[in-house]
Every structure is written in C-alpha cells, then in structure tokens.
C-alpha cells in the first residue's frame, strides 16, 4: 500500500510495523484480495492524522532480487525520476533499484 505524505508529497509505503516508510523495501505485502482490502482500512488513521493522502494498493511481484512493483509507474515512484538520478529517493540512499 502506498500514499503520498501530506507535508511534501513524498511517496510512502505502509510497513509491517503499521507505520509509513519512505523506503519501498520496507513495504508490507499481502497476497490476497481480502487482506489487501483490510490493509486499505488501516490507512485511514494516517489519513485522519494528516500524515498521508490518497492511499492505494499497488501490485508487486517477487523476482530474484525480491519484491518489485509490476508497473513502471510504481518503479519510478519508488526510485525517483529516471532522468535525474541525483534526485529523489535514489539520491537519498533508499531508492528502489531495477
């Protein structure tokens, strides 16, 4: 589950501890629809607390390097602009690679 942080729009991920991480690698994953819908409910407190906006579920798939967003859009959100490798998450040391 991903969202943007209200204060600066940064991309965040719901993590296993129930918090929101800037790092895709820390994102919690679930494997069925029911669990995924339940996850969305768990975003509501953070929305109410004005921490995040626009939470939604994203699809990931497991490959040899670990979890990987299936859509290019999410890979770019997880890393930063591909045309400015010096900016965004990838420049801050926790950008998704690949």
């Amino acid at each position: 589950m991903t969202a943007n942080r209200l204060s600066d729009g940064a991309v965040v991920y719901f993590d296993a501890a129930g918090g929101w991480s800037l790092n895709f690698a820390e994102a919690a994953t679930v494997s069925d629809r029911v669990a995924a819908e339940a996850l969305l409910d768990r975003a509501m407190p953070a929305v109410k607390a004005r921490l995040i906006i626009e939470p939604y579920l994203m699809e990931v798939a497991l490959d040899t390097d670990g979890w990987r967003p299936t859509r290019e859009r999410e890979r770019i959100r997880a890393a930063g602009p591909t045309v400015r490798r010096d900016l965004g998450k990838q420049a801050e040391g926790f950008g998704f690679k690949g």
């Binding site: 943007n4 600066d8 729009g9 940064a10 906006i53 859009r73 959100r77 998450k89």
Partner: peptide
C-alpha cells in the same frame, strides 16, 4: 480544489 486554484498539483514524487 483550493490548491488547484493556486496552481498546486500532486505529482508522482512531490507537489
């Protein structure tokens, strides 16, 4: 709608 009236969008990585 208020932020949009002031040219402020939410994009992929930031506002």
């Amino acid at each position: 709608p208020l932020r949009l009236m002031n040219g402020l969008y939410l994009q992929l990585h930031a506002y």
